[in-house]
Every structure is written in C-alpha cells, then in structure tokens.
Design a protein around this nucleic acid. Structure first.
Lengths: 148, 148
DNA sequence: TTTCATGTAACTTCAATTATTACAAATCGT
DNA sequence: ACGATTTGTAATAATTGAAGTTACATGAAA
C-alpha cells in the first residue's frame, strides 16, 4: 500500500506559508515539497473549502492562510482531508458470515479503534502554532550551532 | 493502498485449525477464507518458521498448530509476519533537509509512535485462547437463539 | 509408482496514492 | 483589448505494495 502523505504535505505547505510574507503560488509550494503544482492545488483546494486558506488567480495570485494558526489542529486537517483510513492493516472481510472470523474481527477492531482514538486525540492537541513554534526553536538552534 | 490483511487471515486460519481435529490442508484453509492455497502456504510458512505450526507433505499432510493457544498473542503473530507497517498515513519524506518538514515529521511521528505502542500493547494482551473462547461464546449464543 | 500435499519462484492482477497532461477560467498590468 | 500568469479540474498514466495465479519441483503415504 502506498501511504497517504497528504497530512504531512499540507502541514509542510501551511508552515512555509506562515513563514512567508504574502501569498505563495502552487508552483512555489510544489518546489518546497518536491511535487507537482496540480497536486498542491488538489489538496489545498480541500483546505479552501474548509475556509482555512484562500486562493487568488492571475498574476500576484496564489495561496494565503486565512485561519488563526493557534486554532487549527492536526485533527481538523485530518478531517478536512476526508478522514482517510489510518491503518494499513485490516480485516480480510468486513462483515463475514463465519463466526470464527467475526471473533477475529471483533478483537482486531477493538484494538484498532482504541489506537485510532488515541491518535486523533493527539492530533487534536497539536496546532499549527505549535508546529510553527517548534520550527522557530529548531531554526534558532541551528543558527546558534553555526556560530559556535 | 491495499490493506494488509494477513494478521486477520492467519488468525482466522489458526482458529479454524484449533476447532478442527487433525491437520488441515492449504486447500481447506484457503476455502475457509476465500483465497488461494499458495497464499495460505506463504503466510503459514512464516508461522512455521516461528515454530507455531507444523506442516506435513503428502496424503494426510497439511497444517497443525504446535503452540499453546494460551501463549500466542496477536502481537507475536504481528512480529512473525514481519511487523508490517501499521499506518496508511505517513510522512512525505523520511529524513528531510527542510527544517519545516522536520518539525512536521517530529510531531506526526510522536503521535504515530504512541498510537502504535497502544495498538501493540492491546495486541500483546489478546491470545489465541481468548479468541477461541470468544468464538465458543458466539457459537453457543447462536445455538441458543436458534432454539428459542 | 501413483497420488496427494507442501515449497517456492515468477508473474499477473488489483487497489490506492501520487504524478502528469491538457485545457478552461479568471485576474492583473500595460 | 491583449497577453501573461495562475488557479480549477478532468482525464489519464505511473507507482507501489498486497494478493492472486501459474508452474513445477520435492517429499510422503498407500
């Protein structure tokens, strides 16, 4: 299975936008993340529908953040992306007739549900502002190291 | 991405074997789970390497459980299957140069690590015997319902 | 020695994400 | 108005990894 990296991608894009004055084009964002402008538009389009970013066409167009960094959580972004499947492991059949398989599914589903709940709980407590602050810390650290 | 359902599959197979007297052929197991005998051999082969099952060739051959159902956990089976990736969501690049992406990865990795730890912890506390008992309960329930 | 079953390699199919191509629509500067 | 720029989006291809299939060798039992 190819892993869904859209959450990682949009976070990367949003933080670059936060650091950047004015708007950024799909082209610029695509270069940041080694991908294609169309892919950027597709995923950013979902954020726009959710009111988190705005886009403008034409020269001087591009993408800008409209939401408050402190209020946008990873969980919210996960939802905006359509709540993609979290796990790469799963049951063979979803609603089997076989009682044996039903027992297996029940056990696995319970474990997966708990793990997913924890993941989303963690996601709910990380905001874009937290990530921006973490970036600032790393940035300062690297600068300090360079001047040692 | 196609989800990895091998854990679900081997559990299904092992429980059928536990309910069944004597050995079961790959063919019989494959029919239980709507798949191909070769797929069964591939995955069961891993369990054999781990000493959990034994196989015999020729007529009257097939697969038998050699481990104690009470000591085999879902976590152990997950390990035997090669600890496949748990998540269908992941970072775009694993070791990025970009500091922004490093912050993003760190935040996501922390959340994923916690969720995976919880999942494996849950897996560690479910044995084949637990699943067999759950199946027996479901079986009895269905029998009772039929005779209402 | 025939038959049945596992053991494996090689290849194909399948499902899902990501990438690419192509072009329409809108906006800005001149 | 025109041309350059940029988003919007549909359609299609490439990629990746699991699952399925084919083919055949190996071994065991009647």
């Amino acid at each position: 299975m190819k892993r869904d990296s859209r959450l990682s991608s949009v976070l990367h894009a949003l933080l670059h936008m936060a650091e950047h004055d004015g708007s950024m084009t799909s082209e610029a964002l695509a270069q940041c993340m080694n991908t294609n402008p169309v892919v950027v538009r597709r995923t950013m389009g979902l954020l726009r529908q959710a009111g988190l970013v705005a886009s403008a066409r034409g020269p001087a167009g591009g993408w800008t953040i409209t939401a408050d960094l402190a209020t946008v959580t990873l969980r919210q972004l996960h939802e905006v992306l359509g709540e993609p499947a979290v796990f790469a492991i799963g049951n063979r059949h979803e609603t089997p007739d076989c009682l044996v398989e039903q027992s297996v599914n029940a056990a696995l589903d319970a474990a997966f549900a708990d793990a997913e709940a924890l993941l989303l709980e963690r996601f709910a407590h990380v905001t874009l502002a937290d990530l921006a602050a973490d970036f600032a810390r790393r940035h300062a650290e690297r600068h300090a190291k360079r001047n040692e």
